[in-house]
Design a protein around this nucleic acid. Structure first.
Lengths: 352, 352
DNA sequence: TCTAGCGATTTGAACGTTCAAAAGACAGAC
DNA sequence: GTCTGTCTTTTGAACGTTCAAATCGCTAGA
């Protein structure tokens, strides 16, 4: 009964649409339709083609689709340029979440970076010129960031994790509502019985830091809890411990310190240990970022919902590529508190 | 003088090889040659084409090249499947380094992953079937890892960061010589004047852990330094602190603890603070991994040379894709000690 | 003058896919 | 028996690139 003349392609020589078409004795286009518009085929044909597809393990070749559609389905994401290791530390959960979210969104992430501090834009240009990506996701934006302007000027689609400060008309961003996060922490601490909540943050002028501080200040009013002293420090442990000492010594038992980062919270933790205060019962501590650091030290922390963020970012990319009009405003996502023993007055943690 | 009829393509509608060919009044092939085989063109033509290329900002479109060459230049890298956050913690510097090394190697990395614990192979299959990647880099290999066997069986090119334990004939791997790293640390500690070096590691049976322990044991002999007690703990801070207490209490001033990871070193650090020992002068500490954690706590640590590793991995990928025969044996890279105050007896660190 | 040879350039085809349009099959209406 | 419409399937072309082969122009040798 006329077996297919050609050998079925081996694992290394994967099947093409023509292989499937021959085997199912239909045209290439019909195979394409079976994959993308099955309702166009008669049930009989569809079944035959489907079987051939399964037998050969056929999947359309991405490069050919890219060429045809003038879309690669890839999204560029810059990592590791700024700072040595610090930057990656914060960017890596974003990248992981993006990579995972990408498979569900039929696209993929292409991370890129360079060692040299200067190039920056060069990487974007190279990727764009060779059409390796359809769009970019930028993160770690700041005042004076040259990227948004450059990308806009060249008509390159992009979305941002973090508001685009220099261009308020740009709304394709997702950001974490830091103020909501610290506010939640304050309310939780108040409910747990702490009478005072101090704040350890970064020097004024950092937008995220100021945001987190604002949430703390406002929530203290709302929750009817005393506002403890404020401290500020760079994101370095020694500095942070100095600042933490200043804050902690001024606090009596039943107070808590809310921190703008887990590193700062760790500093408070260290100082508390130094001063033989029981973490939790005597001194509450809440950090920010949901990092490994906090988990290891049983520190409560405000966790950024990276999976949600990634999902929203990819939706915005689709929005941009689809030529749809951008949302009327950027999207703030609410972080959530991970409640550990460092924010509970009830019982002393098992480790002294 | 006969201007080019078509408008130069806008930023969004990037130039194709035909655009360049028209503008330089040559054939498409000549443009291609100008890019890839400039020596084939007469100087005059080359100059003309080069100018057109520059003016239009032309770069060959990756998708078309992929289609033609049946090579995408992309390499898959799985992340974030195993464990919640821990795994990414160790994989992310690898990914960053790979992404950076990739641009120099004319290729790019496509990270992928999934939330569910099971699929594993599915991600590889999907990427391979659609020919999104030419090869894979796997990391975090372990005994009983199904991936090497599966990839080999399907004839899919791959290289590994970490020995492929189940298949000694497979040599396309790069791994860190943990024993060499701990040995260097021991020699450094001996030279710095510590008379005893203890070891805090993981429970026996982990290949990397045992490797690091071996280097310590052997080097203690060579360096003529007393071998302090051994402790072992899972990679969790509470556990580690328990184990660290056991080790530290048995040590007199002038001893040091060498740890299989920075987290374990951090535990020793905490215990030392608890017991009011001066870190460095009284008690030396050396960690392993070169993490942020160690940097923040001024802990000496053995750093993995990720940039080198990434470079070697990409070379192996080229080797595999080029159809060349694999190297006769796997490649061990030597990590190096970052010397901080925690391994110096000289002067007390500024923070108490 | 013819031809062989060489370097520079062009032509034609192909990589795998999908869009738009054409063609075929078949039913019901006139 | 022809026409119209609908549903299914096929045809032709194009996306941008590069390989292999063909062509062109020129010089040197017969």
């Amino acid at each position: 009964m006329g077996q297919v003349p050609e050998d079925p392609p081996t694992a290394t020589e994967r099947a093409t649409i023509s292989d499937v078409a021959r085997r199912a004795r239909v045209s290439r286009q019909t195979v394409s339709n079976a994959v993308h518009n099955p309702q166009r085929l008669s049930l009989e044909t569809l079944d035959r083609v489907q079987r051939a597809i399964d037998e050969l393990g056929y999947r359309p070749q991405a490069a050919a689709q890219s060429l045809r559609h003038q879309r690669t389905g890839a999204i560029g994401f810059e990592i590791g340029t700024r700072g040595p290791r610090r930057a990656n530390e914060t960017l890596s959960p974003v990248l992981s979440s993006l990579a995972i979210a990408a498979v569900e969104n039929q696209c993929h992430i292409v991370p890129f970076g360079s060692n040299t501090p200067t190039p920056m834009i060069d990487g974007y240009r190279a990727m764009w010129r060779s059409r390796l990506v359809d769009a970019f996701i930028i993160a770690d934006t700041h005042h004076g960031d040259p990227r948004p302007e450059w990308l806009t000027r060249h008509g390159i689609p992009f979305v941002s994790f973090g508001r685009v400060w220099d261009d308020p008309t740009f709304t394709r961003w997702v950001d974490v509502d830091g103020a909501a996060g610290t506010a939640e922490a304050v309310h939780h601490l108040a409910g747990a019985g702490y009478h005072t909540v101090a704040f350890l943050g970064w020097p004024e002028g950092s937008v995220t830091g100021d945001d987190r501080r604002r949430g703390w200040a406002r929530a203290c009013e709302d929750a009817g809890v005393r506002r403890g002293p404020e401290g500020s420090s760079r994101q370095v442990l020694d500095d942070a411990m100095r600042a933490a000492r200043g804050v902690v010594t001024a606090l009596d038992p039943g107070s808590a310190v809310l921190c703008a980062s887990d590193l700062l919270a760790l500093a408070v933790h260290h100082v508390a240990v130094e001063e033989r205060r029981r973490i939790g019962p005597d001194l509450g501590i809440v950090g920010f970022d949901g990092s490994f650091l906090a988990e290891m030290h049983h520190l409560s922390t405000v966790e950024q919902p990276f999976a949600l963020i990634a999902d929203k970012l990819l939706h915005l990319v689709r929005n941009a590529l689809g030529g749809e009009s951008p949302p009327v405003e950027g999207r703030l996502v609410i972080p959530s508190l991970i409640d550990r023993s460092s924010s509970s007055r009830l019982e002393p943690p098992t480790l002294s």
